[in-house]
Design a protein around this nucleic acid. Structure first.
Lengths: 123, 123
DNA sequence: ACTATTGTATTAAGCGCTTAATACAATAGT
DNA sequence: ACTATTGTATTAAGCGCTTAATACAATAGT
């Protein structure tokens, strides 16, 4: 699983992000059952209350559905998952480009930088 | 100036980042005098103690030099600034690529995504 | 019908971050 | 020599986050 939580940000926000990533990557496919709050909290080495907070937010966003006494599942709405995924991707990209721009790298410059870095990784 | 602080992370860490960006982009050139703690704190609409905490970290990293009673200046060592800048850039890129990969976008895929997005922005 | 499991709620404590108020020593600038 | 400015330190308060302990209602699973 590898939850890898830093403490430069509230844990519950990191939990939200990481679960989102698992949903978007397909590790948690649409309709899949999530472990119970207690189990998933244990897995992430986190207090159940904290995990609960994260899951509540995910439900609010519609990515997760709660079944009062039989746990939670990922939404069946694959289309909405895809939408959320693309939305996040676009936000990541623009934020990244903006930050690079603030550092003094023009957008084109950033692009060539990435390309070069990828070339090196292939070798 | 536009300090634009969010509250999803400790303020002082955001201050560190933003000042770093100003240094890397050349807005604060090597040797330049920084405003006093009180002034720069006022500008960022933040408590002097908080700003002090950020500046202390920047000094610890060597980007900023403190002159006990005559304020602070950016380091004269342009070479070290450049090193730090490239280091940050590389970290940004790898973190970005990793996050995209966790979302299910392969590195090449991410690259074409960015390229496409840049094309659209030109129009 | 019984039992374990589910999400949920509450209370208390500790912690770091942030602010506000205040003070001090050193010295740049006059 | 005087004065304003510099970084720095301290104390107290409030806040959100996190943990720990505990409890409850509803129901899936047998």
């Amino acid at each position: 699983m590898a939850w890898d939580l830093k403490n430069d940000r509230p844990i519950y926000t990191q939990l939200i992000e990481q679960i989102e990533l698992k949903i978007f990557s397909g590790e948690y496919p649409p309709g899949a059952r999530l472990p119970s709050v207690r189990d998933i909290a244990k897995d992430a080495a986190v207090n159940p209350n904290t995990m609960q907070k994260a899951l509540a937010k995910l439900e609010e966003d519609g990515l997760v559905v709660t079944h009062r006494t039989s746990g939670r599942t990922i939404t069946e709405d694959a289309e909405m998952i895809k939408r959320a995924k693309n939305q996040l991707a676009e936000r990541q990209i623009t934020e990244f480009l903006e930050k690079m721009q603030l550092m003094g790298f023009e957008k084109r410059e950033t692009l060539t930088l990435i390309t070069k870095l990828l070339e090196e990784m292939k070798k």
